[in-house]
């Protein structure tokens, strides 16, 4: 009895620090922000209750919807950029020769670089005066294509997506290489014996065997790109004229630039709702595809 009590005591004491820290910093703010979304509050004065006004303002603000659309562009660009590129590379990088290890390290390198540096350096790469993008286009005779990539509203969302894709191919590559290495060699050998080669082996053996991993990667990619902020904020700050506004930059610009904490809280709550809906949808879609895949 004494021992059980002692153990109980110890469990509580040793779990408490992590639980408290985590609860107060990660969980409580969610409820806090959905509550303060109902208040008009500049940070200085006493918050005053204004009902659904902030939430209504958010959903009626066309910029919020543009930010959501831009966020979707980033999500789609990441899913259709990072995942296929990583997959293609993983299929090519199955050996452990020095050259292949070098390619792998090169692809992973941007992942460890500060996102602020990524934003700044890509800002320079797109620079109309000395950026290499325009210089390369001129070199191959496509002067007409040169432009101010980050300020032209027709293209700047696509331009800011590329550094984000570049930044995070590495983790997916490593996930896929691990998945390929996990495919039992017996299956590959059997397929070869049956005469399956090249593309047939790829589509009937390798990819189906990797399907679970690809699904995980897509879900990771969606939740990861919903968090995009740093690179875009450093490159454009959401501008010009809010053309590259993302949910996170919209929240930042509407809270800390204009001191509207009530409104910012409402936006934060909307961000959480949107993220959870998207993660849920992606899970459901992936599940359905799996059932279909099983049927084949």
């Amino acid at each position: 009895m004494q021992d059980i009590l002692k153990a109980k005591h110890w469990i509580i004491i040793s779990l408490l620090p992590a639980l408290l820290l985590y609860t107060f910093i990660v969980i409580v703010p969610i409820f806090w922000s959905s509550y303060y979304g109902f208040f008009k509050w500049s940070g200085m004065n006493e918050p005053s209750f204004i009902g659904w006004a902030n939430y209504l303002e958010v959903v009626n603000d066309p910029i919020f919807w543009r930010a959501l659309k831009n966020n979707m562009i980033i999500v789609v660009a990441s899913v259709f950029g990072q995942v296929p590129i990583a997959l293609l590379l993983a299929l090519m990088l199955r050996q452990t020769t020095l050259f292949q290890r070098f390619v792998r390290s090169a692809v992973f390198l941007p992942t460890v670089i500060s996102t602020v540096v990524v934003g700044l350096i890509w800002g320079y790469i797109y620079n109309p005066e000395f950026g290499i993008v325009n210089a390369l286009l001129e070199m191959i005779g496509l002067e007409s294509w040169t432009r101010a990539w980050l300020s032209d509203p027709d293209v700047n969302m696509y331009a800011v997506s590329i550094p984000i894709i570049w930044n995070y191919i590495g983790p997916y590559l490593i996930i896929f290489i691990a998945a390929i290495q996990n495919i039992p060699t017996e299956i590959e050998d059997a397929a070869k014996m049956d005469g399956a080669n090249g593309f047939r082996k790829l589509f009937y053996i390798t990819l189906p065997m990797m399907w679970t991993t690809i699904k995980v990667a897509v879900v990771l990619c969606i939740s990861g790109s919903l968090k995009a902020f740093d690179q875009v904020f450093v490159m454009t700050g959401g501008g010009p004229a809010q053309s590259t506004e993302l949910l996170a930059t919209y929240m930042y610009n509407n809270t800390f630039m204009t001191y509207r904490y009530g409104y910012g809280s409402a936006v934060s709550t909307m961000i959480i709702i949107v993220s959870l809906i998207l993660i849920l949808i992606s899970q459901i879609l992936m599940k359905r595809k799996e059932e279909k895949g099983m049927g084949i």
């Binding site: 109980k8 469990i11 779990l15 639980l19 985590y22 910093i25 990660v26 969980i27 409580v28 703010p29 969610i30 806090w32 922000s33 303060y36 940070g43 939740s223 919903l226 968090k227 902020f229 996170a248 929240m251 930042y252 809270t255 800390f256 904490y261 910012g264 809280s265 934060s268 709550t269 961000i271 959480i272 993220s275 959870l276 993660i279």
Partner: peptide, 29 residues
């Protein structure tokens, strides 16, 4: 112990939360 499964799940939940959505409340607190 009794709450173990719940505590695991509770910590797992944190990975779904977008960090920037906690900025305003954390700033105020």
């Amino acid at each position: 112990f009794k709450w173990k499964g719940f505590i695991m799940l509770f910590f797992l939940l944190g990975m779904l939360i977008p960090i920037h959505s906690t900025l305003v409340p954390l700033f105020s607190i």
